[in-house]
């Protein structure tokens, strides 16, 4: 399992196992419930290259590493339109970025600046892999006592989102992290606590 900011995934090259960079990630496409990454839209490589008509669905990703998105070969790319209707994806991260995070106690925790995903690649082939949204990087509000700073806030498995607000349990506040290194443990502790109280 590995945590990443989705802003770091965009612009990452898409590289075949033969070592060719066939595209780069343009945007991240989330599942309709916002809980996972289902696909990437792509742009060509190079300064003047525009968006591509081909996209990359999560199921075709062989690996998502720190420096590249690996795919078997170019044939796994598919037309963006068909891909989006099949995945039920709802579009880009623009939907969440800038949204206000409210605790269920009605307190403004801050504004979303980045989405944190957990990448799990159990098999070599990419089978059974997942890319779940596990947290947000938010610009903290007064309520967190570190106003204006970027902090990481863990998310429960499912979350209510309206495009205007994102609703998180009030206890999420206690599991706020500062860097990705220790954030994995915070997410687990937070989710364990939620299950315990449910």
């Amino acid at each position: 399992m590995r945590l990443m900011r989705t802003s770091e995934i965009t612009k990452r090259p898409v590289v075949t196992m033969a070592g060719e960079d066939v595209a780069q990630v343009k945007d991240v496409v989330y599942a309709a419930d916002g809980g996972s990454v289902v696909a990437f839209t792509l742009a060509g490589r190079g300064v003047f290259a525009g968006p591509l008509k081909q996209g990359l669905s999560w199921g075709s990703v062989a690996a998502l590493g720190a420096d590249a998105v690996m795919i078997r070969d170019e044939t796994v790319l598919e037309p963006v339109k068909a891909m989006l209707s099949a995945s039920g994806g709802k579009g880009s991260s623009g939907d969440v970025l800038g949204s206000q995070v409210l605790s269920d106690a009605g307190i403004d925790l801050g504004v979303v600046r980045d989405v944190i995903v957990s990448v799990d690649m159990p098999g070599r082939s990419g089978a059974g892999s997942s890319c779940d949204v596990v947290g947000y990087e938010i610009e903290a509000s007064e309520a967190l006592g570190t106003q204006g700073e970027l902090v990481l806030i863990p998310l429960p498995d499912t979350i209510a989102a309206s495009g205007e607000h994102l609703m998180v349990p009030a206890s999420a506040k206690e599991f706020v992290g500062r860097d990705l290194a220790g954030f994995g443990a915070a997410i687990e502790a937070f989710r364990a606590q939620l299950e315990g109280t449910a």
């Binding site: 090259p13 590289v15 033969a18 070592g19 060719e20 960079d21 690996a63």
Partner: peptide, 13 residues
């Protein structure tokens, strides 16, 4: 060694 392309040499993890 898995592949040698214009962008990178790919090796098994």
């Amino acid at each position: 060694l898995i592949g040698i392309g214009s962008y990178a040499v790919v090796v098994r993890e």
